[in-house]
Amino acid sequence: MAALSKHWKKIALVVVFVISLFVPVFVQNDYFLGIIILGYVWAIATYGLNILLGYTGQLSLGHAGFFGIGAYTVGVLTVNYEFPFWPSLLLAAIASSVLGFLIGIFALRTRNEYFAIFTLGVGFVIYLVIERWEGLTGGALGLIGVPYPEGIGPIQFDGPESIYYLILGFLILTIYIAWSIANSLVGRSFMAIRNSEELAAATGINVGRAKQLAFAISTGIAGLAGGLYATYIGFLGPAIVNVPTTFEILLYLLVGGMGSLSGPLVGAFLVTTLFQFLQQFEAYRLVILGPIVVILIIFFPKGLAGLWAALETRIKAMRGKGEMSGDAGASEEPAKEEAK
């Protein structure tokens, strides 16, 4: 029993993983499976934003633009030039990351709200370019017929089920990347910057370079998500690149919890699937979500992950008091004093 409560996180992780492997077996309906696939795609994009906003504390409002760069790199290369999918996807991630790095040189000279607005402008310009460059992107009509990936050896990508596993694989890869960043020195320097730029600089962190790196990783992941989106949906229109998409990704992150490892997945998956299953509320989606965003940011700025963490500490404290007569309580007291 003690072992169970000690390792329950790992056990839960394995259970979730096994369930995710069997989803296509249980969900025979292509429509529902599609919703889950899209939930994963948005989760990947949200992980990208989390690295910049959640870890490093920089709010980029141009995230959808980089998602679009990735999506259209795959779209243009495969549709217009009949390029194979896999190198296109690689190029999509690289292109959006490099573009993010280059834009970051200028964007990250600005701070706080200036940075948010600068990136908002970047996102909007990317949208305008994609919408107006008809020769390349098909303009408002978009690109039709982005193919499924080519098979690798015996594995063929010919239907929603195989695409599901493909995107699940990339999601796990993204989570692994996010996890390793969070536990690395680089990740810790990101978090130091979030907590205080001045302090981070004083401890010898190269703030400019760290932010630049966070931005390039974040935009690279957004591009990857975009590329996957393109191949799954098969159609690309400029609307997906526009500013409201950024706001939606921001919402997923906020619901799940900024700066947490599980937050992007929980937020993106929960919000996208919940509203797809409640189709009759589709029109009221944002009317309901708007106030939820406000309530979350005022009362629970750390989202569901934060709520969960608070609940966990409370349970631990209660259990500690019951079992060890106030041992845990005693160890908590000094921490509270410090917080004051």
Binding site: L53, G57, L59, L61, N112, E113, A116, F247, L250, L251, L254, A283, Y284, R285, L286, V287, L289, G290, P291, I292, V293, V294, I297, I298, P301
Partner: peptide, 26 residues
């Protein structure tokens, strides 16, 4: 939110924007 970090203001404003814009649409 008056004492919250600046990113929270922006995010809250996005929430208000969602609400008003889609409210008008509905």
């Amino acid at each position: 939110l008056r004492n919250a970090p600046h990113t929270h203001h922006l995010i809250a404003a996005v929430g208000v924007l969602f609400f008003l814009q889609s409210g008008a649409q509905v």
